[in-house]
Amino acid sequence: MERVFKNFKKYKYLLFELTKKNIKLKYRRSYLGILWTLLEPILTTIVLTLVFTNLRKKADATFPVYILTGRLLYSYFAQSTRQAMKSIRSNSGMIKKVYVPKYIYPLSDILSNYIIFLISMIVLLGSMLVFKVQPTKYIFNAVIPLVLLLILCLGMGLILATLAVFFRDMEYLWGVILMMIMYTSAIFYDASIVPAKWIFYFNPIYHLIVNFRNSVYGTPLDGNSLMVSLGYSFASLIIGIILFYKKQDKFILNI
């Protein structure tokens, strides 16, 4: 354990460099650059608002805020896990030649996406101003679902990165699972319109969105959802670390 920390300290700078690289290269050679981080959620929210407004039971002037709180969290989860899944394969050139702790690759993908995700929170703040959603003291509770989301993505990233090394079709399978998660996350509809409530228990993101929304709209955290998301986050992290450490020496034989 001590060796792991010592090693991490030595490669801390590499983690920083890789995270920086991911962010820098994402928008290099695009005219609007980092502005896309803000434009993308704005545009999709406009479309979702126009299409789904009538789906809601009662008219709600803050509907765009409702959509954004769900969509931002979901799209971070989707993008970071997708990227982390490919991380070992796409860095195979380096892994085959120089020793580097391998978890650095998925970790840097999760972190760089998290930073972009936090930047895109500006859009949410802006929309709260425009649609007059007054922040209350409960807004500080938002930190809890945001941290749990990071832990969840880290765990899922490690699991997926390991599986994707051995099974190439994980990428397609995960694409399908992500789609199912999106439709069961209550991003653009009220959870109350779904008769089969049990379905939400299979969705780790839904419960994070519930508590994030509660914090934004000024209500206390939902205890039940908090327990479920705590369970999902730490279970995935523990499984991810164990799986990754058990299999990492075999990566090089399969990439």
């Binding site: 490669y11 590499l14 920083f16 820098k24 120089v98």
Partner: peptide, 17 residues
Amino acid sequence: QYTGMENIYLYGAVLGY
């Protein structure tokens, strides 16, 4: 995609400098 300059830092970090 990185320039030579940026790669010096990246590759240096890979080698643990």
